[in-house]
Write a protein that binds this DNA or RNA. Structure first.
Lengths: 206, 206
DNA sequence: TAGATTGTTAATCGATTAACAATC
DNA sequence: TAGATTGTTAATCGATTAACAATC
């Protein structure tokens, strides 16, 4: 690890990238204030965050739109394709497999797995659903880097264990469970009922 | 607003609630250390967070499992049912409508809307997909408190505007866009490609 | 009483932001 | 040069956690 970027900054970089794409029609120069507006954060925050990437801006002018996007992509590691496996071909799994956004961000879903015999063999967005039994084999053959867990909570941990044992170092957990994971494995948890819980709190207290 | 609970604490309360449910089989006493293990956070954090709820524990013993769950539910406002509307009946919208977890957390999906004539009238988890044109009427009739936006990014802002104009104060945005929202409206954004972007960074830098 | 665990303090850590010199 | 905007400092703010007295 050469540069050390604070976690909070890393979490905002994808947001900036998205905002820059939405602004693509504008001028090639983009000020920290422009980006701040679009992203809904403080402009000092933007400048500080971008300074971690090795400063790119031109005083009095702003940041070059294209260069900045490229720089963020590079730092996030979106310049090479990342093979992704989706475990669980339920509604959520299908939603993921059909989500066009991934490919433009250079994530490629290489397989969708399920335990359910009735689902195996059916097609989800051009991919044939394969048996969960094939997990290890597929991870190896396709050099899977990221595993998305979209199973019921009861099987999430065992899937995570198998992914980790196969060498997967990054997991996106959509099942409403807290996974026990090995050191060095990054996990992101997305739990819609947690989000709704937070909204419910605000309903009451605002 | 009587008590002021830090945002970071609020965001952890749903997690604690989930962990307590998973631990339901255990003793009625639950120490901050037990909960810390389950939730993957520091035990001092747990005690501090719980102290905001008005302290509940018994020194030397721990927290009463049931009382604690009830207390968290109350603070989050999960003691009454919250009517939720889902806009967008694509894969993501369908995944939401089918998600059983909501009801146990006292969120009730009262309608699923879409613009697509082909989808209107079809059934998603017992609910008939209705026309987006009905949004205002349904929000009023069903006293909708929370709107979930699961549309393509291009229509997300206009849906948000209409929800806010109809009096909806809480929005969960699943579309990959940054919404401009009025003061006093709480928005939670869930963006899977952002999550993957963060994971990609860790792949490179760990 | 002895052992355990809370509730709270105070120290630490990290993240945000106002302010401004540097400079295009 | 005058105007604009960066890059960075230093102040502020909020969140985390070790430590321990209180007390069951």
């Amino acid at each position: 690890m050469k540069v050390s970027i604070p976690e909070a900054t890393v979490a905002r970089l994808p947001l900036y990238l998205r905002c820059l794409s939405d602004m693509a029609h504008t001028d090639s120069a983009c000020s920290s204030e422009d980006l701040a507006q679009a992203a809904g954060v403080n402009s000092a925050q933007i400048r500080k965050d971008l300074s971690y990437l090795g400063s790119q801006g031109t005083r009095g002018v702003g940041y070059n739109h294209e260069d900045l996007r490229e720089q963020i992509r590079k730092v996030l590691g979106l310049t090479s394709v990342h093979p992704v496996i989706v475990v669980g071909a339920g509604n959520m799994g299908a939603a993921l497999a059909n989500y066009k956004g991934f490919s433009t961000w250079s994530f490629e879903i290489v397989a969708v797995l399920d335990v359910d015999e009735a689902k195996i063999g059916t097609r989800v967005n051009g991919l044939i659903v394969e048996s969960l039994r094939q997990l290890e084999q597929i991870v190896e053959e396709k050099r899977v880097e990221i595993g998305i867990i979209a199973t019921p909570p009861s099987t999430a941990q065992s899937v995570a264990d198998r992914l980790m044992a196969s060498g997967v170092r990054s997991i996106l957990n959509l099942a409403p469970t807290i996974l026990k994971t090995d050191d060095g494995v990054s996990v992101r948890r997305v739990d819609l009922s947690t989000e709704l819980g937070i909204l419910a709190f605000h309903l009451k207290h605002m």
